[in-house]
Design a binder for these strands. Structure first.
Lengths: 235, 235
DNA sequence: CGCTGCGTTGAATCCTATCAACGCTCGTGG
DNA sequence: CCACGAGCGTTGATAGGATTCAACGCAGCG
């Protein structure tokens, strides 16, 4: 069985070669791991908080308007940074909450890599920089989804993103993966109503593109999905 | 007259105190400045490119789908970084083009601040980190706009963002500022059609919230605008 | 057994897009 | 100097995608 802490090693390893010392540092992170139940606030917008890493489970960065409308800004998967990862003593820009039971570790040790200007841990430093870029790219993709794609396209595009991100951390089994999200959560991410997510989901199923039921997604025609939504992964 | 290169000094200065050496470094950036006409590509998604800073003019990070639909992901104002600002030799995640004639400088000198782990230029290093966070927050706000706000709210919210960002670089005159954007550009940013932007604009004018005409915006009821769209600035 | 969370369905409504056309301003060329 | 075209803003009519409201089924659970 793959140890749960490996998501971060897997992700970062794809961005830059990591020395044994660096890998060891990452493997030691779980020593500070803490468990959190569903619906736990991990980070609050406007508050200064220490850097953390999600080691297991799903979480999301979201925002709720005063009248109740909610928008999920980004899904956090194992290996993702919670909030911002730097030394600046500045308020966080995001509010993060768990969507499933989750394991979170202190990311402080990662910052130690910057101690001597990255000379001792060059791989880790560049890997973190690249991870930042890639994460920002996901945010941009989300903007395009919400701004210019139809409900149908948004759904398909999001499933491709999940597939792509989960694959990087070995959480994809062939062409299918676990998706522990309710339709309401998907709606809040896609900027749609629950009812419409439900109907769109049925149509996608009917079209044979993919299947989503019982907490598991299976992609049947990845290539067709990709051309349909103008998929363009950079990494 | 305020020299054009000061936008960056003004922005960064709000995030951390800058030493005379650091300020001087920023003031010297224009030495490498280059002029670009409207509609120039400054940076291309998927390509490795050197770090640059926008010193004057407007630009945008955008993406065009294969069928022509276009989404503006982020507007770049004087003092903003074009693409990503780090040492990683990794493809850019964004495509940036000028919306007006623009002046751009090489941002390489900024990275030199990291040379000795930020010991010599601590203010610059943290200021850049904070700027990163703030920029990411703007991206998140855009997601909320597109996902959960109506056309009316999106327009008002965007105008508040412009006001806020321009104020930080002294480009606001009291309650009004120059906005060199066509309605089509606004539409591509707000995820709307040009026609609907036009109509929404008229309604906002009729309601007396703000005025936008002839390349200039005047906000008449900022407080009411803010409560209306659930405005929540962090910085 | 009744309750709660989640998925599903139907009908009516509304917001926004699309299509098409017109006016205006400005710069260019005859 | 005026005609012409391009770019931008504006308007009307129509269509369509997504929301809202309401209700029902079903599984898990105390």
């Amino acid at each position: 069985m793959v140890p749960v802490d490996n998501a971060l090693v897997l992700r970062l390893g794809r961005f830059a070669p990591l020395s044994p010392v660096e890998t060891a540092l990452l493997r030691n992170l779980p020593q500070t791991a803490r468990y959190h139940p569903v619906n736990t606030q991990l980070c609050l917008r406007g508050q200064v908080s220490p850097p953390q890493i999600l080691l297991a489970g799903w979480a999301c960065d979201h925002r709720t308007l005063s009248d109740g409308r909610r928008q999920i800004i980004r899904f956090l998967l194992p290996g993702d940074v919670i909030g911002s990862l730097d030394h600046a003593a500045w308020p966080q820009g995001s509010t993060v909450a768990t969507l499933t039971p989750a394991v979170v570790a202190d990311a402080g040790p990662l910052l130690s890599g910057y101690g001597d200007s990255g000379a001792s841990m060059p791989g880790l430093v560049t890997a973190l920089d690249v991870m930042n870029r890639v994460d920002a790219t996901d945010l941009r993709n989300h903007i395009v989804r919400l701004g210019r794609q139809t409900a149908y396209e948004r759904l398909v595009h999001l499933m491709l993103e999940f597939h792509h991100r989960l694959q990087a951390i070995s959480m994809v089994d062939g062409t299918s993966f676990a998706l522990p999200l309710t339709q309401e959560i998907l709606a809040d991410a896609l900027g749609l109503s629950v009812v419409h997510v439900n109907r769109t989901l049925q149509q996608v199923r009917r079209d044979g593109l993919l299947d989503l039921r019982g907490g598991r997604v299976t992609l049947h025609q990845i290539t067709r999905m990709q051309t349909l939504v103008d998929w363009a992964a950079t990494d």
